[in-house]
């Protein structure tokens, strides 16, 4: 305790045990001989009257605005007029109050003692005594009851009481490792149109979902047409493949590996995808390797296939968990085969 470590300091007080007023606390208010009834317009009735009229006029404005507000409400309401009238009403009322307080109400500075805000040593000692009387009775003979029984029992019961919290949500399980993409899933647009291999032109970008799971939060992917651009060295644990019959189309998870926003700003000139939330930048030609910003990992690629009728499908789910990292993610290699690039 600080009180024992450092000398006890009593500030802003003079306890009853000290000084002249021992036993009777110094009155915690204004000493009686200070006159603070003066106010600026006390001795000028004419100006005071004018000030009263001014204040009354201001408060009149408040009343007028109040009536106008009712009229505005009655006629259907209009946000800007409502706001303006409220400004008028409250501003006029406030200004009137300030003028009133400033010129017509006494408010001279006065000086008072701060009085006590701490207790005297005797009072403190009395508390210690009361406390230890009870504590001693509890602990002196039957300490085991508290230490050996009550504490462990309380702990066990406390943990039991926390149990219902588990009902709030499922265990993460494998949710974070998989999306709704499945082998053979057709790529569909938001309005449930299957995507044909010729739909996206070079430098085009389209948001796609697995058929049957439009709107699923983990599954959105971006389909890009990189044309004949030279694909560079794949990056990291993730491979990068461009399906030969796919007309230059590649598909990546739309969920940012940093914080999970939808990555979809597409800079066609540098072939980069950018996240609008924290500006993580991914180089598409390097398999969406992060080249700027806080994203630590590439966007997982969706392995594409082209059906005989020209419609696109997913050969497999993403090979890596999509989205931001989590504690168990580091062990993902045992669940996901490495793609040969």
């Amino acid at each position: 305790m600080t009180a024992t470590k450092y000398p006890r300091i009593v500030t802003g007080t003079h306890g009853p045990e000290e000084g002249a007023g021992a036993g009777t606390p110094w009155p915690d208010d204004v000493p009686p001989d200070q006159d603070d009834t003066w106010y600026p317009l006390r001795d000028d009735p004419w100006r005071a009257r004018r000030m009263e009229y001014l204040i009354a006029g201001l408060w009149g404005i408040t009343a007028v605005c109040g009536v106008a507000l009712m009229v505005v409400y009655w006629t259907g309401g209009q946000t800007q007029i409502e706001g303006g009238l409220l400004v008028g009403a409250t501003g006029a009322l406030g200004t009137g109050l300030v003028l009133w307080a400033r010129f017509l109400l006494p408010g001279h500075d006065v000086t008072a003692s701060r009085g006590h805000h701490v207790s005297s040593s005797q009072e403190r000692a009395a508390v210690v005594e009361s406390l230890s009387r009870g504590t001693d009775a509890m602990m002196s003979r039957r300490g085991f009851l508290v230490k050996k029984v009550l504490v462990p029992v309380g702990g066990i019961f406390g943990i039991a009481a926390l149990w219902p919290l588990a009902s709030l949500g499922p265990r993460p399980g494998r949710y974070l490792y998989h999306t709704k993409w499945y082998p053979g899933a057709r790529l569909v647009t938001e309005d449930n149109r299957a995507v044909h291999v010729s739909d996206v032109m070079v430098d085009g970008l389209l948001t796609v979902f697995p058929e049957g799971y439009i709107g699923d939060a983990a599954s959105p992917a971006v389909l890009l047409n990189i044309g004949g651009a030279a694909v560079q060295e794949p990056y990291g644990e993730q491979g990068f493949e461009v399906e030969s019959g796919a007309n230059g189309l590649v598909c990546f998870s739309k969920i940012c590996t940093h914080a999970g926003c939808a990555v979809s700003l597409f800079n066609v000139l540098s072939m980069q995808l950018i996240c609008p939330c924290h500006q993580s930048t991914f180089d598409v030609l390097q398999g969406c390797k992060p080249v700027f910003g806080p994203a630590p990992r590439p966007l997982p690629q969706l392995p594409l296939g082209v059906r005989a009728d020209g419609y696109l499908y997913a050969k497999h789910d993403f090979y890596q968990p999509i989205g931001p990292g989590f504690w168990n993610r580091g062990g993902d290699n045992q669940y996901f085969p490495k793609v040969s690039s």
């Binding site: 996206v200 032109m201 430098d203 085009g204 597409f266 066609v268």
Partner: peptide, 8 residues
């Protein structure tokens, strides 16, 4: 650098 959106 804006992508295009074709008739497809």
């Amino acid at each position: 650098p804006m992508p295009n959106f074709g008739p497809g």
